[in-house]
Design a protein around this nucleic acid. Structure first.
Ligand code: ZN
Ligand code: ZN
Ligand code: ZN
Ligand code: ZN
Lengths: 131, 131
DNA sequence: ACCTTGTTGAGAACGATTCCCGAAATCAGG
DNA sequence: CCTGATTTCGGGAATCGTTCTCAACAAGGT
């Protein structure tokens, strides 16, 4: 049975307080900085639980580090992420879902899953760079 | 200037001899097994060069390991990958390209890139599981 | 052949994540 | 409110993929 500990709640809240993707280590550091005595391993466990339950989005960045973000919209969706500041927009596109399912089916693949992420430089960051 | 060493050629050929995604370590092991004295670091370097030049596809799996595959079709494309045996189908879908570009533009994001991969269990593997 | 300079490779270093395991906490049941 | 069974915690060690270091080496131009 799954128990409710203040640690899990704390991670959930700490993650919810941010609106961009953070790594487990970053989150742990900021929680510690805020006075919480929570352990790093626990943050890892809580985050992977949240991701499994669909309450958080997981994202594997190019540097081999997993980043997490509290889910804003319910249900399946994708992300448009600023590669510079991490600002994130949630995207829902049924076309993509159908396309992915269709591609899998067309080649006889079962239980299709898909990874769809769009990266770019957001307007704010583009301005800073250009300035 | 970029030099041509037998090591780079060997990696290119070893990768081309396979038709699924392999990790740097797997490729290194199989090259060693085949009698090559090539070093692990060199395989890593060669693979990341190949990926940069667009001669190989790179893919970050869920376990945090990078896998590579010789590019069959030229130009930009995506993959449909069997999560069990690694069998891979290259996919080209202009719809997706347009959609990704459109999503980025609609939110003011510049220099869009995207990650689009579809995973599933191929017919052969589904049969084995079911049997 | 000779020199310049990019490349190699063994092992050390690194960094993110997971494992270990004794201690502490949760919660159902009494 | 106790109690006991069982889960979770957490600090540090272990793991594991990848990158770095640096002395020896080799590709190519002249
Ligand atoms: Zn930005
Ligand atoms: Zn989707
Ligand atoms: Zn398969
Ligand atoms: Zn594409």
């Amino acid at each position: 049975m799954k128990r409710n500990t203040w640690q899990r709640t704390a991670v959930r809240e700490a993650l919810g307080a941010r609106d961009d993707f953070v790594s487990a280590q970053q989150l742990h550091a900021s929680m510690k900085a805020g006075g919480s005595p929570i352990g790093l391993a626990t943050v890892y466990r809580a985050l992977s639980d949240l991701a499994e339950e669909g309450d958080a989005d997981a994202l594997r960045a190019g540097d081999g580090e997993s980043r997490y973000r509290a889910c804003v919209s319910a249900g399946h969706h994708h992300h448009l992420i600023c590669r510079s500041c991490g600002r994130t927009v949630e995207i829902q596109a049924d076309d993509i879902e159908h396309w992915a399912a269709g591609v899998a089916a067309a080649h006889g693949f079962r239980d299709p899953q898909h990874v769809v992420d769009v990266f770019g430089t957001c307007a704010a960051c583009a301005e800073v760079d250009g300035a």
